[in-house]
Amino acid sequence: MRKLIGFDDDTLDKLTQLGRDRMATLQELADEAFADLLKKYGVPIDLKDALRKSAAPGLHRKH
Rank of each mutant, 00 (worst) to 15 (best):
M1R: 12
M1H: 05
R2I: 07
R2P: 01
K3P: 00
L4H: 08
L4N: 11
I5T: 11
G6A: 12
G6E: 12
D8C: 09
D9Y: 11
T11Q: 13
T11R: 09
D13T: 08
D13A: 15
D13Q: 13
K14Q: 13
L15K: 02
L15F: 02
Q17M: 04
Q17Y: 02
L18Q: 08
L18E: 14
L18F: 11
L18D: 04
R20D: 15
R20V: 10
D21H: 05
D21S: 06
D21G: 01
D21C: 01
D21Q: 10
D21N: 04
R22D: 03
M23E: 15
A24E: 15
T25A: 01
L26D: 00
L26Y: 00
Q27I: 12
Q27M: 03
E28Q: 15
E28L: 01
L29N: 03
A30F: 04
A30P: 00
D31V: 05
E32F: 07
E32S: 06
E32R: 01
A33Y: 06
F34M: 14
A35D: 07
K39M: 08
K39L: 11
K39S: 08
Y41R: 08
Y41W: 13
G42W: 13
G42K: 07
P44C: 04
D46S: 13
D46A: 09
D46Y: 04
L47F: 10
K48P: 01
K48R: 11
D49E: 09
A50Y: 04
A50R: 09
L51F: 06
L51A: 11
L51I: 14
R52Y: 07
R52F: 09
S54V: 07
S54W: 02
A55D: 13
A55V: 14
A56N: 09
P57Q: 09
P57H: 11
P57C: 07
P57Y: 06
L59G: 11
H60T: 01
H60S: 09
H63P: 05
H63N: 11
H63A: 12
H63Y: 06
H63C: 08
H63G: 10
